[in-house]
């Protein structure tokens, strides 16, 4: 029952959604739409599950005075403040009946001045690491790496006004060699061809995996038997 019923559920739900594309009428069309609605709702429970798990892990760390446990206090405190601000819609008008992101509400302020700087700067850090990695690892070691390097060069320069200035002296018949034109060509021709090949490959993989899951051949998503 622990493994068979989930496999049956996956089969029924997956099959109905596939059939609903070919027979978009009652009962399949209706069922397909309802399954999608249920999916959207269950997705929220995943957020709650994630939050619960986070509290459990960090609660444990605090309780057992694990290494760096004071930081876990920061996590739990941050979670609690944000949750109270959001669930009770503190501040902003018209309060509990209004929009969660109403300007002036505590939730919006925390989003703007705590969540945003933290998230944005985390990603901005990558600018530094990408530069450092370029210097250390981006080498023309062989023909393939040289092609990759040249393409990156053309894109890096061609997507800036500097690239325009660099080759603007070229005569009209050779304008296709201007770096911005080359960059545009690379993006819409060889890049597109390569991405398309990858996309077709991925699509085949997704289709094969979907079939395996629906037919119950692939069951790894159910986890270990011991659970």
């Amino acid at each position: 029952m622990r493994r068979q019923i989930p496999v049956v559920i996956t089969f029924i739900v997956g099959s109905v959604l596939i059939i609903s594309v070919f027979i978009p009428h009652k009962p399949f069309g209706q069922l397909g739409e309802n399954f999608s609605v249920y999916f959207d709702i269950i997705a929220v429970f995943a957020f709650i599950l994630g939050a619960g798990n986070l509290l459990r892990v960090h609660g444990n760390r605090i309780y057992k005075k694990h290494k760096d446990w004071p930081y876990s206090v920061v996590t739990v405190a941050g979670f609690t403040v944000m949750m109270i601000a959001g669930l009770f819609k503190i501040g902003g008008s018209p309060g509990i009946t209004g929009d969660l992101t109403e300007p002036g509400s505590m939730f919006e302020d925390l989003y703007m001045y705590v969540f945003t700087p933290l998230m944005a700067t985390m990603f901005a850090l990558l600018a530094f690491y990408v530069a450092s990695a370029s210097h250390r690892a981006f080498r023309a070691k062989n023909k393939e790496a040289t092609v990759l390097l040249l393409a990156a060069f053309v894109i890096l320069l061609g997507r800036t006004p500097f690239g325009v200035e660099l080759t603007s002296w070229l005569p009209d018949p050779l304008s296709f060699l201007e770096i911005p034109n080359l960059a545009s060509w690379i993006m819409s021709v060889p890049n597109m061809a390569g991405q398309r090949a990858i996309m077709v490959g991925i699509a085949l993989g997704v289709i094969a995996m979907a079939l395996r899951v629906i037919l119950g051949v692939e069951r790894t998503y159910l986890g270990a038997d011991s659970e």
């Binding site: 080498r139 070691k141 800036t160 500097f162």
Partner: peptide, 23 residues
């Protein structure tokens, strides 16, 4: 933002070139 973007691109290209010369 395209101004700082341009300068940063040039600096990165410069470091890639230096990296390759030393390599």
């Amino acid at each position: 933002m395209m101004g700082p973007q341009t300068v940063a691109h040039i600096v990165i290209v410069f470091f890639i070139v230096i990296g390759n010369i030393t390599f």
